[in-house]
């Protein structure tokens, strides 16, 4: 201060500024504390600033709130009560805006996380689906393989119409449509196959050689097919899965000129239809 008195001349120019500051000082002297209510707003703001989830999520709004609170904390004379409460109102709303803005941002950030979790769940769902499809396919393959194996046992041949099992003429006595009494392992294998695959239908077709009239052969081939059908139904295969027809000598598979050829032509074919 002694130094100040020594420099009074230089201070003459700064008089207006000094006047203002003095005015402020005198105001302080009459009302040195912050207005009522500013403490509450400050506490609210401090709580928000110390909230680890919210404080970083509304920086701009928090800065505005900080400025508003600082303004509200400025001491005012008793005569300025209206201004004091106005500043507190403004500061309070600014703090609330900062809080709401941060809460919105928090919700959005959590949403991104939630989306990731959901994506994870979806991924798991898809993986399981894929696994199941894989297992189903494997099962389908194994059942298909099983069917192929059984058809191979029946010595079935693959044709355009499906698998064809040929039962030779040894099943029947000459000129007879009666199945021989002796059990036929090939027919029993067919029963077992049809039991295993209840959706499969079978066409039973009778064929003959060219010995005798066409009419006779036609009738005989149908009767033999019917005999096979009867055998199958007696063993539990439902009749509506089976159809019997006779082709007589029309569809020979070998020459009727030789005994061996004629024997090949006397047959019953079971066509296991394709699905």
């Amino acid at each position: 201060m002694n130094a100040l008195t020594g420099r009074q001349k230089t201070f003459a120019g700064a008089l207006p500024a000094l006047a203002v500051s003095l005015l402020l000082l005198s105001a302080c002297a009459s009302q040195p504390t912050s207005p009522d209510g500013s403490i509450e707003v400050r506490n609210k703001l401090t709580a928000l600033q110390n909230d680890p989830e919210l404080s970083e999520r509304a920086r701009v709004e928090l800065r505005e709130a900080e400025q508003a609170v600082q303004l509200a904390e400025r001491p005012l004379p008793d005569s300025e009560k209206a201004l004091a409460s106005h500043r507190i109102y403004m500061a309070d709303r600014r703090v609330e805006i900062a809080r709401a803005t941060a809460a919105t941002k928090l919700a959005e950030d959590q949403r991104a996380e939630l989306g990731e979790q959901r994506g994870e769940a979806r991924l798991q769902a898809r993986t399981r689906e894929a696994d199941r499809a894989h297992a189903d396919a494997a099962q389908a393959r194994s059942s298909e393989a099983d069917m192929q194996r059984r058809l191979a046992e029946l010595e079935a041949k693959e044709t355009e119409r499906g698998m064809v099992v040929t039962l030779g003429d040894v099943l029947f006595d000459t000129g007879s449509a009666q199945l021989r009494d002796s059990t036929n392992s090939n027919l029993d294998k067919l029963v077992s196959f049809l039991d295993q695959y209840p959706d499969q239908r079978a066409l039973i077709e009778g064929h003959t050689d060219n010995v005798g009239s066409a009419d006779y052969n036609q009738r005989l081939s149908l009767q033999r097919a019917e005999s096979v059908k009867q055998y199958l139904t007696q063993r539990g295969i439902t009749a509506n899965r089976l159809s019997a027809s006779g082709f007589g000598l029309q569809r020979g598979i070998a020459s009727n000129d030789t005994a061996a050829g004629r024997q090949q032509n006397r047959r019953v074919e079971i066509v296991i239809e394709k699905d």
Binding site: E61, R93, I97, A100
Partner: peptide, 20 residues
């Protein structure tokens, strides 16, 4: 000024409600 700041608060709280 108060009307404006409280309207801004309404906007901010609406955004929060929608986000939640």
């Amino acid at each position: 000024q108060q009307a404006r700041v409280v309207a801004e608060l309404a906007i901010a709280r609406t955004a929060t409600a929608k986000a939640s």
